[in-house]
Write a protein that binds this DNA or RNA. Structure first.
Length: 414
RNA sequence: GUGGCUGUAGCUCAGUUGGUUAGAGCGCCUGGUUGUGGUCCAGGAGGCCGUGGGUUCAAAUCCCAUCAGCCACCCCA
């Protein structure tokens, strides 16, 4: 191991892995566009305030996981830990409220200073879908449907389960939160240290604790369902019905919660058991209060984010590199002819490799290692006849082909 | 951030109670072919045993620290 290591929690993505990433991103982008979600991009860093206000001052991400730096005393900046905040900010900065609804697709690197594990790096990549300006539950259904469609297209849907919950509207939520806090206050003595901490910062999260003692207390805690008003119930019913109509199976998980106040109604997560503790693969929900919270006009929104690394780990077989055709000159006299031929074939749209050195045997060997589909051998004999020998590297068959029809002949190899 | 496991060639791993020149498979290079790859055969290169310190006559092996990966918690995609 060299001492010249990449920074902890970061890694280089070499071509084999990059192809996996690309399959994930390209598949998601293409499907999102099919649903009308257009790709956009925001800066990798923002004023720290953007994340503080959108993620909440007390969230773990903000309190201990952000890469924050300052260039001048007036500029405190942060590498984005997630995408939604930047998109919401762009929505406000650009005065985009006039054009609702807006549908966006996004992909790019995110940064969180967490303790690294498999499927959890400090620089990681997400794909992201956001729907702004739609308050109706059909929006939730569409957004979840895209998620399911992407997972299906990637062949990983059957490795996941969709968990679904509702957080109700602000009124329901406030009532439930108050009841929960009151209940847990009465049972402080039986709660774990972690949960006591959550009680102040993010009481709903206690519901998701894995601690055994906590679980016993939680068993008798008030249920969200009892605090949902009629409107919230109707909203959730419509979402569920929509999913059923689309044959998207889900399981209700009352412990699936989001801590911050601007989250409303639908919360969902596609989870897997194949990635250990990093089970969440694609997750999102409705955030009707977010844009107002960070200073924009009250605008409903819903979206999800998915981890590219996690999805690429679930991908069954790795996509193979494209198979080129290799041009092989024989002897120094053929070098120039090979060079011009290579360029001509490339301009005709073919994937061509031209080795930079070596004799015939070496070049053939290299062609094999490139998983080349065919070799175009160009020597004195061939040149004398204005032709090239085309060798099919899968079958070993070869034939003499006139240079005039060479690109057509090679096109057969796809 | 807390607790734990691990760290030997490019990769996957052996390495006996601390004891001479640290091994294997795969991969890589060369040759067996002067114009033909994959298979086969022969040969070869490549390791400050993660890093730094300590114990010892002697450390890949024991101890400490540090860095990194992994597992669980936390949190989350």
């Amino acid at each position: 191991m060299s001492t010249l290591q990449p920074v902890r929690g970061t890694r280089d993505i070499l071509p084999d892995e990059m192809r996996r990433h690309r399959v994930v991103i390209d598949t998601a982008r293409a499907l999102a566009e099919q649903y009308g979600y257009l790709e956009m991009s925001t800066p990798v860093f923002e004023f720290t305030e953007v994340f503080k206000r959108s993620l909440g001052d007390t969230s773990d991400v903000v309190t201990k996981e952000m890469y924050t730096f300052s260039m001048k005393e007036s500029e405190e900046l942060t590498l984005r830990p997630e995408a939604t905040a930047g998109i919401a900010r762009a929505f406000i900065s650009g005065g985009l409220a006039q054009q609702l609804p807006l549908k966006y697709f996004y992909s790019g690197p995110m940064f969180r200073h967490e303790r690294p594990q498999k499927g959890r790096q400090r620089q990681f990549h997400q794909i992201d879908v956001e729907l702004l300006g739609v308050a109706e539950p059909l929006g939730d259904v569409e957004v979840i449907a895209i998620g399911a469609h992407v997972l299906d297209a990637l062949g990983v849907l059957e490795k996941t389960a969709l968990e679904l919950n509702t957080l109700g509207d602000p009124e329901s939520r406030r009532a439930y939160r108050a009841a929960l806090v009151e209940y847990f206050q009465d049972h402080r003595a039986r709660l774990s240290a972690d949960s006591l901490d959550r009680l102040d910062r993010n009481p709903l999260r206690i519901l998701d604790s894995k601690n055994e003692g906590d679980r016993r207390v939680i068993a008798d805690a008030p249920l969200f369902g009892d605090y949902l008003n009629q409107e919230s119930r109707d909203f959730f019913d419509t979402v569920k019905t929509g999913l059923e109509v689309l044959d998207i199976p889900y399981q209700l998980n009352p412990r699936l919660v989001r801590g911050l106040d601007y989250y409303t109604h639908t919360a969902f997560e596609f989870t897997t058991r194949e990635l250990g503790a990093q089970g969440a693969v694609l997750a999102g929900g409705r955030y009707d209060g977010l844009i107002e919270t960070i200073g924009g006009p009250s605008t409903p929104g819903i979206g999800w984010a998915a981890g590219v690394e996690r999805l690429s780990m679930l991908l069954g077989r790795a996509p193979v590199a494209p198979r080129p055709v290799v041009v092989v000159p024989v002897g120094g006299g053929a070098e120039e002819a090979a060079l011009t031929l290579t360029q001509r074939l490339r301009q005709a749209g073919l994937s061509i490799e031209l080795g930079f050195s070596g004799n015939l045997k070496k070049r053939m060997k290299r062609a094999d290692r490139l998983n080349a589909r065919a070799a175009v051998i160009l020597g004195e004999d061939e040149l004398a006849r204005n032709s090239a020998t085309v060798r099919d590297l899968d079958t070993g068959e070869q034939e003499l082909v006139s240079l005039d029809v060479l690109s057509d002949r090679l096109a057969r190899f796809g």
